[in-house]
Design a protein around this nucleic acid. Structure first.
Length: 282
DNA sequence: AACGGAACCTGAAAGC
DNA sequence: TGCTTTCAGGTTCCGT
């Protein structure tokens, strides 16, 4: 369930695993991950034989650049790229699926042409896997993304100007990917806590000082989350067994606010669960 | 135009 | 134990 930091982790992993390799075989285990009407054979034909030139990220989107064509991968809520043990032989239909596997890509790496196998897993199927063959254009959702905090930084005045035109509460506004690309429910929750800004405040009501504080909060939570996950090879999500909640207030409703010790509250804003301190976020 | 709510899916955890 | 409900880090569409 990825926000910017997890997608960045996925990008770095994919880069290590398949950059410079040649795609040898592809299997689509569940066609529902493809866009409506797209057939697995179309995807397979577009990918097999292609060379992987680069793995890029913008917001929560991955763009896998091939020598001809490109793949856009969005992880939705439960998407994940993993590396699996590759068999010696070419992929065959009855090779075991990894649990929740939707797409499998086998590549050949280096002079020795050793085989590697990566799998896209996605139990809830909210992710997307879009192949644009040939010299196709970028997806509209990709081109319309706002500034990416990691790639572009956050321009406080530009953000302030953008927020001035929004009436929605600041929290759901931050989740709008055309405002800033990659901010998700956890980051927005954490950033507003760090900035001491009430998530219900109309976006247009924030002062420049507050927008600057929110910007710093976003950078802080992104950098800290990336630092945490770069510790291990495998990414672990909060809700997975044995995982410890690494966040400051997300998922901690009812427990004392780390700042003022009053119990943290929770409400639904823009349809999303929102934890905040009623007492010290204004 | 702008908003809330539902829809898309499935698994895990909490509640009873 | 087992059935039911709730919730989930995302996006898009639909009706008011």
């Amino acid at each position: 369930m990825p926000e910017l930091p997890e997608v960045e982790h996925a990008r770095r992993s994919l880069e290590r695993w398949v950059k410079g390799s040649r795609i040898d075989a592809v299997r689509v285990a569940d066609a529902r991950i493809l866009d409506e009407g797209v057939r697995p054979t179309t995807v397979i034909r577009a990918l097999e034989g292609r060379k992987v030139v680069a793995i890029e990220r913008r917001g929560k989107w991955l763009r896998i650049v091939l020598d001809r064509g490109r793949v856009f991968s969005h992880l939705g809520m439960t998407g994940k790229w993993v590396r699996a043990r590759a068999a010696n032989a070419k992929v065959s239909g009855d090779d075991a699926l990894v649990r929740f596997e939707k797409v499998r890509i086998d590549v050949l790496v280096g002079k020795s042409a050793s085989r590697r196998s990566i799998r896209y897993l996605d139990p809830r199927l909210f992710g997307r896997f879009v192949v644009v063959p040939g010299d196709g254009a970028d997806l509209a959702v990709w081109t319309s993304l706002g500034p990416d905090p990691l790639l572009d930084g956050i321009d406080v005045d530009a953000l302030l100007a953008k927020l001035a035109r929004r009436r929605l509460p600041i929290k759901p506004t931050l989740l709008d990917q055309t405002v800033l690309a990659g901010v998700g429910n956890i980051q927005a929750t954490e950033a507003l806590f760090f900035a001491r800004v009430d998530p219900r405040r109309p976006a247009s009501s924030l002062s420049r000082k507050e927008v600057a504080a929110v910007s710093r909060g976003i950078m802080k939570t992104i950098h800290e989350t990336i630092a945490m996950q770069s510790v291990g090879e495998e990414i672990s999500y909060v809700e997975e067994p044995n995982a410890v909640n690494p966040f400051t207030i997300y998922g901690r409703e009812g427990t004392p606010c780390p700042r003022c010790k009053k119990p943290l509250g929770k409400m639904i804003l823009g349809g999303r669960g929102t934890v905040f301190c009623v007492s010290c976020q204004h």
